[in-house]
Design a protein around this nucleic acid. Structure first.
Lengths: 202, 202
DNA sequence: TCAATTTTGGAATGATCAGTCAATTATAGG
DNA sequence: CCTATAATTGACTGATCATTCCAAAATTGA
């Protein structure tokens, strides 16, 4: 433990980062001014530059934090004991809540459309995390298939991609008015098609 | 036909609008400077303001043009004689091409995420057109159901929303690297699940 | 008290951008 | 030629923004 000389930092680095994350999440990168950040984080402008570098670095750090939180939550859900399809339902419920709670959608989705095609660092990060997400989903579906809970007309990988695509679509539309009924239609029908056993031979 | 006095416009209004559309499509609203527009449209800055009002008005006009083109193409496809499911395949093929050709995705999707939650006019326009799209798709699916080509585990409306959601998701990810295999997985599995007849009772 | 370090905020920089103004030039009908 | 309209161009305004510089406090350990 290194003892510090001089005035110590008056704020918690993680906590302030979290505040910044929420601002970026709700407003996006471009629409967020430095002033918005310092106000929400409760620190001065110079402190921000001293501790995080610049706006872009802070954004990247916040985005990384967000994606890891999401991935962890998902991993944790899938590792619980119980039926794979039940976990899938939980995943859908989580996604639905995210799409509705604060009307800011999924930050990964927002990032990819706002700066993904300009900012290489952001694009790489998101692509990597997306791939991880797909892997997790695929594993779950493979377990479901082995448990006989799955429509085996399509491969787990293709199914994982379909689910992720639909979820991505929902999140992307969360900005406009997106009522509960519509979300239920999308997730419900997807689940029905996935669960439904292939042509039951009698 | 009213005869004009004075120097006539040296450019075609529609043609220039089309050029602006493509710039907005590829770069988005914020990242497009007036200079980019005038250069692509081949007109002077003042001419732009004279004929279209301002940047926002021009964007709205371009977006409206885009959405109407897309809706027309879809309507036209669905009205052709032939199997509804075949039309659905065509629709998927169109969407795939759009997601891959120029890596700019669907302009409706881009708009909704970039400015949808700030710009009311854009939000209203997109919501309206999306609803039309959903209606067209739903009609097609109802025809497919009557023709017995459809998995009847879910309603045509819910299915239409699922398809639109997945397509939306694909378009949103077109910005990042999105390889053909992934698109095929999403659209292919969706089609397989839709087409597959419900548990065939023997 | 001294030295180190952080916090805070004002001021300035440098850049970009949308939109306006005005002067000039070009092209049509009468 | 005359006049109305349009195109072009450059300069200018006003605003916003990220970033840096700087100087004055505040807070710790020695």
């Amino acid at each position: 433990m290194k003892r510090m000389r001089g005035r110590p930092k008056a704020f918690d680095r993680e906590q302030a980062l979290d505040a910044a994350l929420h601002v970026f999440w709700q407003q996006g990168y471009g629409a967020t001014a430095i002033g918005d950040l310092t106000e929400a984080m409760g620190i001065g402008r110079q402190s921000l530059y001293d501790t995080y570098g610049d706006k872009h670095a802070l954004y990247l750090e916040a985005l990384r934090r967000y994606t890891e939180m999401r991935l962890d939550a998902m991993r944790q859900t899938f590792e619980q004991p119980g039926s794979p399809v039940a976990h899938l339902r939980t995943f859908f419920a989580m996604w639905k809540e995210e799409a509705m709670s604060c009307n800011s959608g999924c930050m990964m989705v927002n990032s990819s459309t706002e700066v993904g095609h300009v900012d290489d660092a952001v694009a790489r990060l998101i692509e990597k995390k997306m791939h991880r997400l797909e892997g997790l989903l695929q594993e779950l579906l493979e377990r479901a298939r082995q448990a006989g809970e799955l429509n085996d007309a399509v491969s787990p990988r293709a199914l994982a991609r379909l689910i992720l695509g639909a979820a991505h679509g929902l999140a992307a539309r969360a900005h406009l008015g997106l009522d509960e009924e519509e979300i239920d239609d999308v997730l419900g029908s997807l689940l029905a098609l996935i669960e439904q056993p292939a042509a039951a031979v009698t």
